[in-house]
């Protein structure tokens, strides 16, 4: 079922994950990286050592990792392929919004530049993935609008969902169930001071969500 990844491909997975996580913080702790990839910290450390040798990342002991210029460029290109595939799968193949992230994870390593260029043309140069994250251009550059995490909002605040970040199957299927997707306008009705549960009004329906899931939702306030 799942494709066996070559070494180069799993290096790509790592730098992609670091690239995604760097949006928030300069140094990515290895434990964060490990939990993002769903592997043990030990194997993450091993792999990090390998990609340090390839000159893709820098490792600061006990602090975390950071992409080098080369690493960053390659990470952005993987992200570009990933997000383009997501677009294709949702827009053209009409696959469910919450499933395409995993599917794209497998497709992103598979093909060369010429296919990706064709895909860009076919999709008419989209600027963001179905989950609202920006698609880097062929130079690995991208623009994105500033937003805040939903869990930092207070009672009475309003906003529009920009993107879901970081993406994962769990997060996406949870949100799909509650119909929380980019572009939707929401307002915070209540923040429970006991357990931090947020009651939000979205698409005319009240939804209650926890702090952890709310931190994955980026809102333009």
């Amino acid at each position: 079922m799942s494709v066996q990844l070559t070494k180069g491909e799993s290096a790509e997975m790592y730098i992609k994950a670091i690239g995604e996580l760097t949006l928030e913080e300069a140094l990515v702790p290895i434990s964060t990286l490990a939990s993002r990839l769903g592997i043990s910290p030990v194997s993450a450390t091993e792999m990090v050592h390998r990609i340090v040798e390839q000159g893709l990342v820098e490792h600061e002991r006990y602090k975390g990792v950071r992409l080098t210029e080369t690493g960053k460029r390659r990470a952005m290109l993987v992200l570009r392929r990933h997000r383009l595939w997501e677009r294709f799968l949702t827009d053209k193949l009409k696959l469910p919004w919450e499933d395409v992230h995993d599917l794209a994870c497998r497709l992103e390593h598979a093909v060369g530049t010429e296919v990706i260029d064709a895909l860009v043309d076919f999709l008419d140069e989209p600027s963001s993935c179905p989950h609202g994250n920006p698609i880097p251009n062929s130079e690995g550059e991208f623009e994105y609008s500033d937003g805040v995490q939903l869990n930092t909002l207070r009672q009475g605040d309003e906003g529009v969902i920009l993107r879901i970040h970081p993406e994962s199957r769990d997060v996406l299927s949870f949100l799909a169930q509650k119909r929380i997707k980019p572009g939707a306008a929401l307002s915070v009705i209540d923040v429970d001071d006991f357990d931090g549960l947020l009651t939000i009004s979205i698409n005319g329906v009240d939804q209650i969500i926890g702090q952890r899931i709310a931190s994955h939702i980026v809102v333009a306030a």
């Binding site: 997060v171 949870f174 969500i209 926890g210």
Partner: peptide, 8 residues
Amino acid sequence: LRQTDLGF
């Protein structure tokens, strides 16, 4: 009962 967050 509501599932309001991801299991951790």
